[in-house]
């Protein structure tokens, strides 16, 4: 049954409508400073692991907390809550030696996308 879009639905958008952070006490697998390797996986379905970081090595900058793994939710595989981390990749690791040594790219990745390097 589709809910009618009325004024109440719209006004809820002002009240943290899309909050998806989970208040779950789950032991993190990684900590800031850990060197990690983004898995080289090639799923046919939805993932938030872009191709350009697959197989690349980075460093955990921050533990963002616990969120549902979108890959599993979209596939209908149920909830797989887990930590998500801000990972710093050096520009040269991603784009090769012509990239400036000063620069980096940071991306938020779920635990299932990562292994210890």
């Amino acid at each position: 049954m589709t809910r009618k879009v009325d004024l109440e639905v719209v006004n809820r958008l002002y009240q943290k409508a899309g909050a998806v952070r989970l208040k779950m006490d789950i032991e993190p697998k990684f900590k800031p400073g850990d060197r990690v390797l983004a898995r080289n996986i090639n799923p046919t379905g939805h993932t938030r692991l872009p191709r350009y970081v697959r197989g690349k090595e980075g460093v955990v900058r921050r533990d963002n907390g616990v969120f549902h793994l979108p890959d599993a939710r979209v596939a209908g595989d149920g909830d797989q809550p887990q930590h998500n981390y801000s990972i710093r990749f050096e520009a040269r690791e991603l784009w090769g030696g012509d990239a400036p040594a000063t620069d980096c790219l940071n991306i938020d990745l779920w635990e299932d996308y990562l292994d210890h390097a």
């Binding site: 952070r21 000063t102 790219l105 779920w110």
Partner: peptide
């Protein structure tokens, strides 16, 4: 100057 890219592909 360090250029720092943030790919906001997740929930933040």
């Amino acid at each position: 100057t360090e250029v720092r890219v943030w790919d906001s592909n997740a929930e933040l």
